[in-house]
Amino acid sequence: MTTSAVTRAVLFHELGGPEVLRVEDVPLRAPGPGEVLFQVEAIGINRAEALFRAGAYYYQPTLPGSRLGYEAAGVVEAVGEGVTEFAPGDPVMAAADFDFGVHGVHGERVLLPRESVVRRPEGVDAVTSAAAWLTYSTAYGGLVETAGLAPGDHVVITGASSGVGTAALQVARRQGAVPIATTRGADKRRRLLELGAAHVITTDSEDLAGEVARITGGKGAQVAFDAIGGPGFAALGDALAPGGTTVLYGWLDHRPAQLSMNWPQTVHTYDNSKIVGAPDARRRVSAYLGSGLRDGTLAPVIAETFHGLDRVADAHRLMETNRQLGKIVVTL
């Protein structure tokens, strides 16, 4: 199959809010050795992309003309020399372990190294697939591979209404653990309980460490999974059982993180690309995700679906309201 010389993609030429995003024609070459070209059917929106667009991510875009986007699902159009694991017509999704300023997948057709592509689980549609890889690989990699979450453990999950947060609730349940969700206001409490939280703590009005102590009979939680950091990080440590583990995977609060003096405890800073970028870990994540989606124990929560690349900016605006619960997806 031949490829056209251009495709449409989301770019930005300056730092800023959703208004800086543009849909433009960009050059598209045929796949080279070790590369996979696929036609995109759906893309997932992540907080990391908003931070990157605003210049607040852990690496900076190259401007003008930066690409954007970690997650996409679609169908293989062509493969380069040496690629034998994929063929035209295969349903695939992006395995987000790349610099998305260069390889950003918010476009109609995208070209990725084969190491950044995985097969979609059999029978799983594009919207579900676009909402699954980054959220579940982060939750699985952080909770299982890094923290060693075990059956019966209590785990505190901050930012529980986010895409990763709702995935973490399900991963915790699948491990036989007891998920304790935190949210700032009470408006999301009922929905978080419906989504698998055993308990919900409203941090605007309840004391985190005190509530965890009450829930656990004074023992504390074995694991905390945090997207926020900042001064509030110390309260998570206060909520841990002796020898507990915290995994910090995000920094929504850019102020310095403060450590609890409730020692001993282990603190991990988590980089998902470093964990699931390794071939063995990527294989484990793929197997875990596929089996969970098939048996129904993993089911991405879709907050809202927009249609068309021109709606990506609207999807970013919704994400920045923090009103959504779950993942925002854009279909093409």
Rank of each mutant, 00 (worst) to 15 (best):
A5Q: 08
H13A: 05
G16K: 01
G17I: 12
E19H: 01
V20N: 07
E24C: 08
V26M: 04
V26P: 10
P27W: 04
A30S: 15
A30Y: 08
P31R: 15
F38C: 08
F38Q: 12
Q39T: 10
E41N: 12
G44Y: 13
I45V: 15
N46L: 04
E49R: 09
A50V: 14
A50I: 12
F52C: 01
F52A: 02
A56Y: 08
Y57T: 09
Y57C: 06
Q60Y: 04
L63T: 07
L68F: 02
G69E: 04
Y70H: 07
A72S: 14
G74K: 06
V76M: 00
G80R: 09
A87Q: 08
D90M: 02
P91G: 07
P91S: 04
M93W: 13
A96F: 08
F98K: 00
F100K: 00
G101P: 05
E108G: 05
E108Q: 11
V110L: 07
L111G: 02
S116W: 11
R119C: 04
R120P: 03
D125W: 12
T128L: 12
A130W: 08
S137F: 02
T138N: 09
G148P: 10
L149M: 02
A150Y: 01
V155D: 02
V156M: 04
T158W: 04
T166G: 03
R174W: 05
V178N: 10
P179Q: 02
R184F: 05
R189E: 11
R191Q: 12
L192I: 03
L193N: 01
H199T: 07
D204S: 15
L208V: 07
A209G: 12
A209T: 08
G210K: 11
A213D: 13
T216N: 11
G217V: 06
G220K: 02
A221I: 12
Q222V: 03
Q222T: 03
F225G: 09
D226K: 04
A227P: 13
I228C: 10
G229C: 07
G229R: 00
P231Y: 12
G232H: 13
A234M: 10
L236H: 13
A239P: 06
A239H: 07
L240D: 14
G244R: 01
G244S: 02
T245V: 14
L259V: 01
V267P: 04
V267L: 15
G277A: 08
A281N: 14
R283G: 11
S286D: 15
A287L: 06
Y288D: 11
Y288K: 02
G290V: 15
D295M: 06
A299Y: 05
A299P: 02
V301Y: 03
I302A: 08
G308Q: 03
D314S: 13
H316C: 00
L318W: 00
N322G: 08
R323M: 09
R323P: 00
L325F: 03
G326M: 11
K327C: 06
I328V: 15
V329P: 06
T331Q: 10
